[in-house]
């Protein structure tokens, strides 16, 4: 499973409980579309830290990094490249 698939699968499994339909495209805001709330963002961060072994700084918890599948893929890619 590539990075994109893995992130998307996590969101679909953990926040949509297997239902792909609400996630209409990979650019849509997860927060504004009611897919996650503030607790969900914290779970998402724990997933990125755990499954990808990333060290995420507090100031990186911003929508530009976390608020869509595309943003997440870009963020993880940049973090892995910098590691």
């Amino acid at each position: 499973m590539d990075l994109h698939e893995k992130i998307k699968a996590y969101i679909v499994e953990n926040f949509l409980f297997g239902d792909l339909e609400p996630l209409k495209d990979d650019a849509m805001s997860l927060l504004d579309n009611g897919i996650i709330d503030s607790t969900g963002v914290m779970e998402l961060v724990a997933f990125l830290e755990g499954d990808f072994g990333l060290g995420i700084e507090d100031e990186e918890l911003v929508p530009e990094n976390l608020d869509s599948v595309d943003n997440l893929v870009g963020f993880v890619t940049r973090k892995q490249a910098a590691a």
């Binding site: 996650i36 709330d37 503030s38 969900g40 963002v41 990186e60 918890l61 911003v62 929508p63 976390l66």
Partner: peptide, 8 residues
């Protein structure tokens, strides 16, 4: 309204 991103 965006406490989901607490750093902001």
């Amino acid at each position: 309204n965006r406490f989901a991103y607490p750093a902001n």
